[in-house]
């Protein structure tokens, strides 16, 4: 609907311009014929006036749009050729007229020049207004798209923190525990609250010691372990040196969440995860391994598996795109994160 209105107004604008010119020219020709002055050159003048208006269209970058709109079946090259021919023809006419009949039709000539100029101004004003309106529309569309992506980023960020699936599934597990083991339910609730509090309070740009991030990870894993009972096992290999290193907050936990989801999705009865952290030249190296299968990789695409987001964050923070690396071989998925110190 909006589309057709737009096309219509665009066509209308140009039609009015053209119509106005044709009327002017017709009036002129009529006036000349009625006065009986120089009927033959008058016709030439009318022709001149009409064809000389076309170069204005062309020069104002209006002819191509307009003509291709009208002659949509013809190729635009043909139209352009036509316009050029008309342009050359009008120049020839003008030159011929000015050489042969200039003295006789001085008055008419002046009138003609005035009309042609008026046509030119009219067309340029219309075309300029059109371009302006189009530009404004484009600007507002651009602004809207920027606002859209900003909001999307914000939403993404929020979703990242709230992790609705994790949150509601955990609440459901607590509900289940309340039926049979209220003590376990209580401690799971405490862990969940503590985890939510810590991750909500984190300032994403502030570096935290690995030790602190590991504590958050423990909280998170304690909840997942209750949800998936003995299916989940995590092995750590973390050097003391690495513990003292710092990293941006909430880098490790999303990677671990991804590994847990991925691992559980593989359908293995026992899911063994491995986390290594050590220092190597210039920074902290984190290595996370989980079992996976091809099928779960396919379902994982674009499903809130947080690695894309993590990569984006690392890129924003360090202006490097090689910090997060993933590898999949023999049913093991490895996530490597390097944090420059």
């Amino acid at each position: 609907m909006a589309m057709s209105v737009k096309t219509l107004s665009r066509l209308e604008l140009r039609s009015i311009a053209l119509l106005w010119m044709v009327i002017c020219d017709a009036l002129l020709v009529l006036a000349l014929l009625e006065n009986g002055v120089l009927p033959e050159p008058a016709l030439q003048l009318a022709l001149l006036s009409f064809v000389s208006a076309l170069p204005f269209f062309y020069l104002l970058d209006i002819s191509q749009d307009f003509l291709s709109g009208v002659f949509s079946k013809l190729s635009s090259r043909l139209v352009l050729l036509l316009v050029c021919l008309v342009l050359i023809f009008s120049v020839i006419c003008f030159v011929a007229l000015s050489i042969f009949d200039l003295r006789q039709m001085n008055d008419h000539m002046a009138l003609m020049v005035f009309v042609i100029l008026a046509q030119g101004i009219m067309v340029s004003v219309l075309s300029w207004t059109w371009t302006l309106v189009k530009g404004l529309k484009r600007d507002s569309a651009y602004r809207q798209s920027i606002e859209g992506s900003l909001r999307e980023a914000e939403l993404h960020h929020l979703r990242r923190q709230l992790q609705p699936h994790f949150l509601f599934n955990s609440l459901n597990s607590i509900k289940a525990l309340l039926l049979k083991d209220t003590k376990a339910a209580g401690s799971m609730l405490e862990n969940l609250s503590e985890f939510l509090r810590s991750s909500l309070n984190q300032d994403e740009n502030r570096p935290v010691p690995l030790e602190e991030e590991l504590r958050l990870l423990e909280l998170y894993l304690s909840i997942e372990k209750i949800r998936f009972a003995d299916r989940l096992q995590v092995q750590y290999a973390i050097t003391d040196e690495a513990r003292a290193c710092s990293l941006p907050a909430l880098i490790l936990q999303p990677a671990m969440e991804n590994a847990v989801k991925f691992g559980l999705n593989s359908g293995e009865e026992k899911v063994e995860l491995q986390l290594k952290a050590f220092c190597r030249e210039g920074g902290l190296q984190l290595e996370l391994q989980n079992p996976c299968d091809e099928a779960s990789r396919l379902s994982a695409k674009g499903k809130g598996f947080g690695l894309d987001l993590l990569r984006r964050r690392l890129h924003l923070l360090y202006k490097r795109s090689d910090l997060l690396q993933i590898k999949q071989e023999q049913g093991i998925f490895t996530t490597r994160i390097f944090i420059p110190q």
């Binding site: 459901n172 597990s173 509900k175 289940a176 039926l179 049979k180 998936f228």
Partner: peptide, 13 residues
Amino acid sequence: DDEALARDVLRHY
């Protein structure tokens, strides 16, 4: 359901 606890709730109900 892949979570035993979630099945517990259903079974209980």
